[in-house]
Design a protein around this nucleic acid. Structure first.
Lengths: 418, 418
DNA sequence: TATTTTTATTTCGACTAGTGAATTTAATTT
DNA sequence: AAATTAAATTCACTAGTCGAAATAAAAATA
């Protein structure tokens, strides 16, 4: 069965191939790659660097000389030689106290901040409890101001030492423009957050949503460091996700969050706060558990507990054998398995990291949930996707925000030394 | 509430930041970017190229001179000047007949092939019906040989004209190694397909799975050309997906396909051929529709129709008002909505393209399904994700395979001219 | 102890990719 | 015919990188 070469589908002269150049055209200059490699390794010799980056020894000498000249790297005197003949390699390390950044996580009930130096060392942390209601931009910025004061005091730095600030907050955040179309923290929509921040504090601000912050934290400080493609899932008030592809945070084409919490795991399922039915979040989030808890615990409607207290009670009941309390967690766990399995099937990540506070409810993070997830994924003979659960404290989010600021600052500083 | 700067979480000297360099270090050389831009545009002037790629006029002259010298580009005499003063720009175009490639799609019942020149023009196509049973590697390669002969004849080329071959086939295909861990077309697992092909035909082969081929086709020839991040969903025997991120095909960390068909849309739902329950495929694929069709059409088990005939009968019945036939399609459509919505929520693509043969069942591709999908996604004020449905013929898959071969060949040819 | 071996680093000439300003070219408009 | 305009070319110059040879600093060996 032959079809003649009808050129019917070849339009006049349209060409072929992608019309847009790939963004990776902006490859980082070698100097920056070297700097980042040294920072990533904590300490590295020139020779090791040539091997890792595939450059010549001559280049290593020249480029590290530039970086040392610029005061960004230094040679380390204390060489802990282990063995070997030949001239001993001299290690390089980042000069830590050239620049300082602050990373901040804003959430409804508490803000936290971390101050780090240019090598990523934490010099101080601070947290600030706040009334949990939507605020005006001015109020939030005042709270941020207080927090910055606090962390500067702890780390014994002044505001003029700070080169950049990173902030992560929940809601819909536009990283590019630094605006906040919507956030539970802010009373008004469409705040021009970054612009107001920069005007008020005179500090460069990098803003992003909280799931991306956590993902960045895993990429910079956590288990994601050694992986180039992985997913981070977090269960807090909602269910969030971040994705790293080719060692970079993937932000989506329209800059929206990656809303794992609103993927549908059940047609016409439980009601979600987003107004739809069957969202994963509607089975997992604290409000979802809380509303079932009220039923399971036979609380009279008069006796109103805070959602947090309700959850704690529910968890205690489940632990002590209350069947209906257990089924709540068990069902949540099953749907979590489905959500995770869907992520694995769609992305084929090298690793999936489950991170967040809700870790305490170990029904949700039981071995059982993970193995159910593995059962729900096809592996086709490949080794199964790795899973890690991290019960970081609050500060990890703020650390992620420092990573955002650090990476942007590094770009800038390195291109300046030319 | 202040916490002192406890450096407890800062381990001895671990450094911070990603340990792996981003793959984008291998930025394409300017010459290649120019060539690809000209090919993508079909025809482009030097000045336009400088604007698009942000290079200087001097570089444009020098680099295009190299490419012309190497015989890859040529100046176009016929300048259709529209208006304007000044020296008229002279357009450049790809010299099409420098290299030729063949793209092949292998499937259970039919193989197809396309022969294109270096500019991506189709010079000939061929299709070959085959018995639909698993075959030995040798049998498949014989069929491929026949197909290559056919398309060479049509295009009046000889095998020595061919610089590379791309093949797409269903199953689990390892693009990197050119091996096929499993495929419905092959009787044995773990075939060393590419190696055997190259030895037998003396042609360089690039192999990938069929969903990736289709995605590449959309990226090179279809609606994806102008988008840098999009998803392609295809419904054939199964449900496949491909993803383009930053103008590149994303292949996943473990090189597995992106198995949209095996994401779960229903806990303990319909039985899938993969052995699990609730997979999207179990509601959408032809075998899933066929098994329900048997019930809905009240066929006695004795009367055995081919799956294809069964589906056609089902479709006809639905069209003519058979309620139970309609519900089959309607349910499938709803689950398709869910599956698509989940992709949009997880990836936030700029565009989602639905492509494939099953287009004829317009219940599945109805406006209704798309709008249901939109209802199932949160847009948070952003404009909704675009959706396009393409009812390409069989040849689009093979065209995608030519794109695979063309892009690899281009890399090679351009680096050679140095 | 002096010499050899080994490994890390530096130096230096060469080459490549690219820029940017001045110039040339080829058209249109006046 | 001159002025204007835009495209393309020329050319001197820079940054980045390689690779080979030279140098440096240690361990091993004679």
């Amino acid at each position: 069965m032959l079809t003649p070469s009808t050129d019917d589908d070849s339009q006049p002269r349209p060409g072929c191939g992608p019309l847009l150049p790939t963004g990776s055209a902006n490859a980082k200059p070698m100097r920056q790659q070297i700097f980042e490699h040294v920072r990533a390794a904590g300490r590295a010799t020139r020779t090791e660097t040539t091997r890792m980056l595939g450059i010549s020894a001559g280049s290593a000498t020249a480029l590290t000389a530039d970086l040392i000249q610029a005061g960004l790297l230094r040679e380390v005197e204390t060489i802990p030689r282990e063995a070997g003949r030949g001239r001993p390699a001299v290690a390089l390390e980042v000069v830590a106290d050239t620049y300082f950044v602050i990373g901040i996580k804003l959430s409804e009930e508490m803000h936290s901040a971390v101050l780090t130096d240019f090598a990523g060392n934490t010099l101080g942390t601070a947290t600030l409890s706040t009334p949990p209601h939507p605020k005006s931009l001015d109020e939030i910025l005042s709270e941020v101001g207080t927090l910055i004061e606090m962390v500067l005091n702890i780390a014994k730095k002044s505001q003029t030492d700070i080169a950049a600030v990173g902030i992560g907050m929940s809601g819909i955040v536009d990283h590019q423009s630094g605006t906040v179309p919507w956030s539970p923290l802010l009373a008004l929509r469409d705040s021009d957050f970054a612009a107001h921040f920069e005007e008020r504090f005179g500090l460069r601000l990098y803003l992003d949503n909280d799931a991306n912050m956590l993902t960045l934290a895993e990429l910079w400080f956590g288990a994601g460091r050694a992986k180039s493609d992985f997913a981070v899932v977090t269960i807090e008030h909602g269910v969030g996700m971040g994705l790293v592809i080719d060692n970079r945070l993937y932000r989506g084409a329209r800059g929206m969050g990656l809303e794992l919490g609103h993927t549908k795991v059940q047609l016409d399922g439980a009601l979600c706060r987003c107004g739809q039915r069957g969202c994963l979040e509607a089975y997992l989030a604290d409000y979802a558990l809380a509303r079932e808890a009220a039923t399971a615990l036979h609380h009279p409607p008069s006796e109103r507990l805070s959602p947090k207290a309700l959850l704690d009670a529910l968890f205690a009941q489940a632990k002590s054998g209350n069947e209906s309390a257990q089924t709540i967690f068990r069902r949540a766990g099953r749907y979590l398995s489905v959500g995770l399995a869907n992520v694995v099937q769609l992305f084929d990540p090298a690793l999936i990291i489950i991170s967040g506070e809700r870790m305490q409810y170990d029904y949700l993070y039981a071995e059982e949930v993970i193995s159910e997830m593995h059962r729900l994924t096809l592996n086709n003979g490949r080794s199964a996707c790795g899973v890690e659960t991290h019960a970081w404290g609050d500060l990890i989010w703020a650390r992620g925000a420092t990573a955002l600021a650090l990476s942007a600052l590094t770009d800038q500083v390195i291109t300046e030394i030319s």
